[in-house]
């Protein structure tokens, strides 16, 4: 098994807080470093309260990258800053989430540095004769490939919700936060974000939710999602949707799960009125436990379901809510 001397993680931030996938990257980093140094780089403005709490995390150093061009996402500025930090720290492992941010920045940085990049990894194996072996789904989740990197640095993006998150704050001493000022005076910003229309409402982040109640075309209307939302609330989860439901206007595209939408790996996925098309399965088939509720016993969703109820979702879903409330009282 290999060890890395120096691991660098690029944080992913949403609404001023670190996304869960960053904590997952920290635990992968510790597995790979096995005693080596772990660095975390934070580029966007983070809530000052969170910075304080992060000081207790088991990290060797945090880099707070401060530059006016990085306050909001800009591709050129981000690529340049990542490259600067990699040149400065010379890590043998670079980790980030396989999120919109990671997907945009990591391939450009990898191409610039002519290094290998393993994208969308779901598992790390350290027991092989190779240094580190990562597993990633291929063919829309119909097979897996295990790959390794032939020459450091190891550059890896992690699919959210597939690794145990690290929240260990056992350090008795708070770690040092270094401020890094990248020199971005030479770069031209060739793309400019003029507007962001937020459709993702507050509440549980879909790609990080432990429980997802998802509705498809079988939900039949926008109002039809109300019982699904009630169930999601009592289970502490989030609501998702199939492309069918989004196309029909019952749900916003922000909720779409599947190849084109979000890829999710919750502990519990409840599919209501979803037929189970391959593009939908690509986004959820790795959920730990899958429940299907569908009036059609032949629906392909039952092939991936651990538990199935053949029945009308409008009858079943409210009964599930009631039953959970009853035994939880």
């Amino acid at each position: 098994m290999g060890t890395a001397n120096n691991v660098l993680i690029f944080a992913d931030i949403r609404n001023g807080t670190l996304r869960q996938v960053t904590f997952e990257a920290i635990s992968v980093a510790h597995q790979m470093a096995n005693g080596g140094e772990v660095h975390l780089a934070i580029l966007e403005s983070l809530d000052p309260n969170q910075i304080e709490s992060l000081k207790q995390l088991k990290l060797d150093r945090m880099w707070h990258v401060d530059h006016p061009l990085l306050k909001t996402f800009n591709l050129d500025a981000y690529v340049e800053t990542w490259v600067h930090l990699i040149d400065l720290l010379n890590p043998d492992v670079i980790l980030t989430g396989h999120t919109a941010l990671g997907r945009d920045v990591s391939p450009r940085v990898a191409a610039r540095k002519r290094i290998g990049l393993l994208s969308d990894c779901i598992k790390l194996d350290t027991s092989s004769t190779y240094e580190f072996v990562f597993t990633r789904p291929i063919y829309a989740g119909k097979a897996y490939v295990q790959r390794t990197i032939t020459k450091p640095p190891f550059f890896v993006t992690l699919r959210p919700n597939n690794f145990v998150a690290h929240f260990d704050t056992s350090l008795d001493q708070s770690i040092e936060i270094k401020t890094f000022h990248p020199n971005l005076s030479q770069i031209s910003l060739r793309t400019v974000v003029t507007d962001v229309v937020r459709k993702v409402t507050s509440g549980v982040d879909l790609s990080e939710a432990n429980v997802i109640v998802a509705g498809g075309r079988g939900v039949k209307s926008k109002e039809g999602f109300a019982p699904l939302e009630e169930l999601a609330v009592v289970l502490g989860g989030a609501v998702g949707a199939s492309r069918g439901a989004c196309d029909a206007g019952y749900a916003d595209y922000a909720l779409q799960i599947g190849q084109t939408g979000k890829v999710v790996t919750p502990d519990l996925y409840i599919a209501c009125g979803i037929s189970g098309a391959i593009q939908h399965l690509a986004g959820m088939s790795m959920s730990k436990t899958i429940v299907a509720i569908n009036i059609d016993p032949e629906a392909p969703i039952f092939e991936v379901a651990d538990y199935g109820i053949v029945g009308d979702l409008f009858e079943v879903v409210p009964l599930l809510t009631k039953e959970w409330q009853r035994i939880n009282r």
Partner: peptide, 11 residues
């Protein structure tokens, strides 16, 4: 390639 296939596995 900078990466190397170790194995392809069925689901």
């Amino acid at each position: 390639a900078r990466t190397k296939k170790v194995a392809i596995l069925p689901v």
